[in-house]
Write a protein that binds this DNA or RNA. Sequence first.
DNA 1: GTCCTATTCAAGGACTCCATTGAATACCTG
DNA 2: CAGGTATTCAATGGAGTCCTTGAATAGGAC
Lengths: 221, 221
Amino acid sequence: MADHAAKAALFDALAESAKALANGRRAELIDVLSQGERSVEDLAVEIDQTVANTSQHLQRLLRAGLVRARRHGTRIFYDLSSPLVSTLWRTMRRVAEEHVEELEQLTTAYVGDRSGLNTMTRDELRERLRAGDVVVLDVRPPAEYAAGHIRGAVSVPIGDLRARLLEIDSGARVVAYCRGSYCVYADEAVRLLAEAGRDAARLEDGFPEWASARLPVERGA
Amino acid sequence: MADHAAKAALFDALAESAKALANGRRAELIDVLSQGERSVEDLAVEIDQTVANTSQHLQRLLRAGLVRARRHGTRIFYDLSSPLVSTLWRTMRRVAEEHVEELEQLTTAYVGDRSGLNTMTRDELRERLRAGDVVVLDVRPPAEYAAGHIRGAVSVPIGDLRARLLEIDSGARVVAYCRGSYCVYADEAVRLLAEAGRDAARLEDGFPEWASARLPVERGA
DNA sequence: GTCCTATTCAAGGACTCCATTGAATACCTG
DNA sequence: CAGGTATTCAATGGAGTCCTTGAATAGGAC
């Protein structure tokens, strides 16, 4: 019979990965980093915290092995250490969605009412992309588009959309996507497009799910 | 733009699921419960803690929605609230295995040296079961066998194996399995069988992985 | 109803976690 | 090398976590 202490130490180590995710701010960081690498200051703005605090959270994630750091000039860019981390995060979200009762209220409190919103599944979008009868808009910040996006998508950051409406072929069906189902950029885009009389829908989830399903993506530019 | 406070509350709630797993003892509980439901006292013995402490950990898991409780007579049985929780736990283990450096040492400190041990993959075992040229031993406690086991496996709790060696067809190739790769029962079984001159191997992982891969299982008796 | 057993509750002390603050470090620019 | 910016470090107080202890509950058996 193996030692109780050795068993306890092993499971304590396994629990460390969970501890790294066991904080709302760090969860937000993982969520943002699922879109691609970002600088510390950038991340601090994203999660609405001081740079010092963000840095400490990032180092906690670093110690747990969930992220890695890369120096580029005067900045340090953090990135998930592997796509498996993104999978872990999505699995945890699914568990929470399925088993935490209050989550639904919290979600609507954040994203608002989605009942009037057209949506499209990954599978349907894949088919329509293949057929070529759809315009896909990536409404995330440019840095995230640059780090990777759905093949064939056009980058139109949500803040620019209103000004660039005329660029979009008025006959086409438009699909907008962003970071995932907890991201509201695509919602806003679809509302804006609908007001302008376009046939618009949002992708149900976001880029990480698309990439994880091994559907076609492009990196860079 | 949605409210920062609402976003923070949402991610705090998501992080609650991680907090539930962010403790070595609770991780052990989830690991044991992946084999099927168990009573509080049973679980307390399993994780080497007092009943009171075990009860508190179970309630924490209950609040997070990861487990559910069922009263049966004088006892209360806890169970994972869905197979998704088992998936989450396995994903977390994979992440830790891939990204936590010290884990390998901790594993060998607990399970010992496995270099002399024959192993068999799930796929190979499935093929051999189909061909019928293998004897499969479930060396977990009887309660776990009863809650579910590989179809065709025989229950031989590890403590009984030595006394029941003669029951096992001496010409057959024998495969032992238990809870998973962190479980040492099957290791012990293979060593014991090898000493007795049998052709023995352990399944690389355990029952939860087999069931999760939708390979044939039996429930009850 | 009374005993027995399984589980939960409540309170306490050691420890860790988290956001804040102000200072220190490290790299780039000129 | 001086100045500027991005990031990290160190210290602090308040909150939460974890295990222990002893008592309380709640079914079942008699």
